[in-house]
Design a protein around this nucleic acid. Structure first.
Lengths: 203, 203, 203, 203
DNA sequence: CATGAATGAGCATTCATTCAT
DNA sequence: CATGAATGAATGCTCATTCAT
């Protein structure tokens, strides 16, 4: 039931929807071509504006990069937080987080690729802010892994790097025709949880 | 007289010295700033040349990118092949390969980062060639994992993605003060080989 | 009820308050940075407006320049006229005019610098109007010098150029910690009035 | 006898003559329109170049301003030094300097106007350098005035400001149809040297 | 009176590339 | 092999100005 029949507001807030359009276009182009290979004119043209007009909405190209980064972080962090909240078993929580991470990485590719691919050192003036956002997001996985009951000889630090690295690298190989994010997450977690080494046959 | 007198020398002792210098400079700058943020003038200045002079050695900036990529691939592939040849046990071979991969990724950072970070779609005309090199290199890990004896329910495809992704993601977190590439490889392999899930206490 | 009840008030007490604020801001910025280096946004921001809103008060940036120029001219001309009216001796009148000229040049710097520094050829469409204002103001000094009793061999034209040029050039060197405008005017007039050349000793 | 018949050098030095052309064009345009109102495209077009090509010869627009300033200073300083060297009487030396100053101000208008009109605070990064050049040049007039034999009550500081200000202000009123620089200098110096005040008739 | 949003032209500057010398 | 000089297109950004609301 999407619309009520009475009293639709005469003027929709209309607020800032060009800013959203601009950010969507920027996110898409940054992903497709990279930040440096995307020009302000490209972004403007994508929304039917002139390049100078962008500056009414954003102070600089780097500010756009940061805005895309922040929006990507927000989306993936919200999804992970929501997914984790539904589970209580530590391994189930980690798997839910991994699936949510992957799901948003793929569904909101435009915004999240910039998160994955932009190194703070490349981001100029907004580099430090990006570094903070990155750290803040990663702390979720750190906590989830700390909550696991693990054999004492396992190094949680490397477990995290293994899983988190593999999840992020998915941007290189993931394609929509293949397995779902949930399946990928389950396979990754299964591979980690189980004994892989088959005892060598004695001879 | 360094060479025997018969047969034309296969390679002159230090032919095209400047080309090597240029490539080193390009590799370093591409890593430090990214491809698009590096100008031909930057590269030329780094070797004390004028930018126009580069074109005696390379046809274009993209050709330089490809040359860096190829050199990086050659170095890492040679190291992995040599390391694998020394081992016979499949898990030991995979660990040796992982350690060699990491070691070259770090020791020859300038050349290999370009391999890790350049997406084929960003590379313009040399994109397809880069895609081929990437696939060729990855096939080594595919084979090493095929040779493992694994429990039947384990999906080798995802094991490879897990390990290879994590290894490549190391560029984000690896720093020279921390563990050695060999230690990292051992920790990753241990984490994978062993049983992580502790059986839940019955109640 | 600030005005008497009969007769329409000639000017409302503080009509178009914002116009005055805008003009003050423009004058200050034109002086500090020059006309071309000042943007409408700078002026608007200085009074807490958006740049588009200026156009309610002024037709264009050049109109603002002219308005500043006219206001500067008015202030300096009024001051000179008032000062001259108090004296009757021609040299005293010239000195009073010079002191008043300098005093307003300094006290109303923002408005008068634009007078001193804007060449008509730089002022675009309002150039001719500026030329007229300049000539009108200068005529005062022409008249004051015509009224002096001078030795016949003195060229009044060059006396005026000497004094008027030196007074205007004061914008380059005058600073508030130094002598007062009155002192400067007295020194200039003294230097002119007196015999400077000391007869060379005969030998 | 402008050319010798034998052995004209086949290749003239040809060095840097585009740089000179560019500087001439910049000087002219800076004078005609002011620094800020002149664009790099204007300068380039004036010598039949594209605007980007200027940057082979100059690092920035401000560097061009400085180069014009320096060249103007050099020309006027050389002329003044040469003129002063020919005279020995202090008043004659001052008059020769004033005439030379005016002569170069007019003959090399394009270069010297920038000297006269550019305030250090407007020159951005090259402001301090301009301030130094200005001070260096002015010291000549300071010395010439120190060498005069003057009545003790005369303030040499204001004499210098009077003369130097009036000379520089000449840019506002000087036109080629009028008196020569030498005549102007003579009139200015005469006006200064002589007794202007006619003793008031006793009554 | 003023804003919010945009225009369109223009800005200084940088770029990869070319080519005669 | 390399330079000196330039090209021509593009870049991020700023500008005065407009106008519906």
């Amino acid at each position: 039931m999407p619309a009520s029949s009475t009293a639709t507001p005469i003027r929709a807030p209309r607020q800032d929807n060009r800013r959203v359009q601009l950010l969507d276009a920027a996110a898409r182009l940054f992903r497709e071509r990279g930040f440096h290979a995307t020009s302000m004119r490209d972004i403007a043209k994508a929304v039917g504006m002139l390049s100078g007009s962008i500056y009414y909405h954003f102070d600089s190209k780097e500010e756009m990069l940061l805005a895309v980064y922040e929006e990507g972080e927000r989306r993936v962090a919200d999804a992970v937080d929501a997914a984790v909240a539904l589970e209580s078993d530590p391994w189930a929580r980690l798997e839910a987080a991994s699936a949510a991470h992957l799901r948003v990485l793929i569904a909101h590719r435009d915004y999240t690729q910039v998160m994955i691919r932009t190194l703070p050192q490349e981001a100029g003036a907004v580099g430090p802010r990006i570094r903070d956002l990155r750290r803040d997001y990663e702390s979720r996985f750190r906590r989830l892994i700390d909550d696991l009951a693990l054999p004492p000889e396992i190094d949680r630090h490397y477990l995290r790097l293994l899983l988190f690295g593999a999840l992020n690298w998915s941007q290189v190989w993931f394609h929509s025709g293949g397995d779902s994010p949930e399946t990928v997450a389950r396979r990754f977690l299964d591979t980690l949880r189980r004994q892989l080494e088959v005892p060598a046959p004695r001879h």
